[in-house]
Design a protein around this nucleic acid. Structure first.
Length: 360
DNA sequence: ATCCGGTTAT
DNA sequence: ATAACGGGAT
């Protein structure tokens, strides 16, 4: 067992992190405030204690029993301890935080076992999402055509999915509204309509030229093969131009209430990896594509959650766990997140003094 | 791996 | 003035 001492340069004094080092690559961190100075700063065997620049949190590794042999091991531990140091250095109130247990959970992942604390995390995210103030809550594809009869609603969901890829929710919402107002939200009417008309109505969704063309084809297929309805199986949906795995699962979920798989978009993909909920099969690496994430997530997430996980994480990703500068300071489950405060955080977490967390 | 477009945040 | 946003097809 090693101790890591962390000092925040901007405020706050010290805390120690105790690191238990299991040889099976499972590393656990727990944090306690420093009690006395009876700690023995033995040897300080490494001349470069994580010092990248003067403003970074100071970090020292020392051992009670001098079990630490050589610099390699020490360096490795420092690397593992660094997130803690950063987290502590950034945190507004070190006292409060220092008492919490830092479960940088070592997730089972590829064994198909659920990661530690996943229920707490999910619950915490649900609470953060209860205000329903994310774009997806009002303008997601799943809302499309909610006032229409079932068949028309399903078609609206399909169209909305088709248009929504690579475009913001509100832009897509606008396009759907325009189609609706022009009675162009049914297979029949779209099949008859001029492609240029479609194109101008759906502008400015991303890639509107191709989408207009895809929309015409899809409408025709729906009309001739499915009597104006949409395909009801995953395979058939995937065969439609412009419908890939993400949209196919979305349509199965919200269009047919038939959950065949998790709808993994960029938010779900990113957040699951930040939480350490997924990994490449056999590896401890992060998944590199949404499809890998879907398969890994499906290994352990209970099926009741397959459908709700998407709107939950999408909204969370739009408001708090953003792709860039995640607002870890506003996140109530950061204590369970291995990635918390690892990326440059948003100015919303109060650390305006001494820009010490500029680019850690 | 690259292309497909426009909008919004930095 | 850029870079980032967000999936599918080749």
């Amino acid at each position: 067992m090693l101790h890591v001492r962390v000092r925040s340069p901007s405020t706050l004094g010290f805390a120690t992190a105790r690191i238990q080092f299991n040889r099976m690559s499972k590393t656990r961190f727990s944090v306690k405030p420093i009690q006395s100075k009876t700690e023995i700063p033995t040897s300080d065997p490494d001349p470069n204690p994580g010092s990248e620049n003067g403003s970074a949190a100071e970090l020292r590794v020392f051992s009670r029993r001098k079990r630490v042999k050589r610099t390699e091991e020490v360096q490795k531990l420092q690397l593992e301890a660094k997130p803690i140091a950063q987290k502590l250095a950034v945190l507004p109130d070190i006292e409060e935080f220092a008492y919490k247990k830092l479960n940088t959970s070592t997730n089972s992942i590829d064994t198909g076992k659920p990661p530690a604390n996943w229920e707490k995390v999910l619950d915490g995210i649900r609470k953060m999402r209860s205000s329903e103030d994310a774009p997806v809550d009002s303008m997601g594809c799943e809302k499309a055509g909610s006032s229409l009869p079932p068949k028309e609603r399903r078609f609206a969901v399909l169209v909305s999915s088709l248009l929504s890829s690579q475009t913001k929710d509100h832009v897509n919402h606008g396009a759907i509204q325009r189609l609706l107002q022009n009675d162009l939200l049914s297979a029949d009417s779209i099949d008859k309509a001029d492609e240029a008309t479609i194109k101008s109505l759906i502008y400015p969704v991303g890639f509107y030229t191709r989408k207009a063309s895809n929309l015409k084809k899809v409408a025709n297929i729906c009309l001739t093969k499915y009597d104006g309805d949409i395909p009801s199986s995953l395979e058939e949906l995937l065969s439609l131009p412009g419908i890939g795995p993400k949209m196919a699962h979305l349509v199965m979920n919200v269009g047919w209430n038939d959950v065949q798989g998790i709808c993994v978009d960029t938010h779900v993909h990113r957040i699951c990896n930040r939480l350490g909920w997924v990994s490449r099969p056999g590896k401890k690496q992060k998944t590199s594509t949404p499809e890998q994430t879907r398969e890994a997530l499906q290994l352990w997430l209970p099926k009741e959650e397959w459908d709700p996980i998407n709107p939950l994480l999408v909204g969370f990703g739009q408001t708090i766990c953003t792709p860039l500068r995640p607002r870890c300071g506003l996140c109530s489950v950061s204590e369970f997140c291995p990635s918390a405060f690892k990326e440059a955080s948003s100015p919303s977490s109060k650390s305006k003094k001494s820009g010490s967390n500029k680019k850690l």
